[in-house]
Amino acid sequence: MSRIDTETARKVAKLARIAVPEDQLPALAGELSNILTFMEQLGEVDVDGVEPMTSVTPMRLKRRDDTVTAGSMPDRILSNAPDAREGFFAVPKVVE
């Protein structure tokens, strides 16, 4: 049975860039644990020799041709950006 402890919950929240106040971490850890426990019931089913099902309909992955059909609309691409300058998205400095 998987248990998500507070520390794991904090890490998962950070990786997902979700701000979770410290006092709510235990509750979140409990909820995540419950979800995992619920899903783990599936582990009881014997699936030996059963191919994983990836789609409910027998579909082939759709393909596109190698032709340029989109682009040339920098203004629309940037229209939701909080800050854009000289055609670029402008974001707080990130330097490695």
């Binding site: 691409i77 300058r85 670029f88 998205f89 402008a90 707080p92 400095k93 990130v94 330097v95």
Partner: peptide, 15 residues
């Protein structure tokens, strides 16, 4: 592509 040297406080991003 991120460009870091066009502005002192911002990084510029080209997709």
């Amino acid at each position: 592509k991120s460009i870091h040297d066009m502005d002192p406080t911002m990084s510029f991003v080209d997709l």
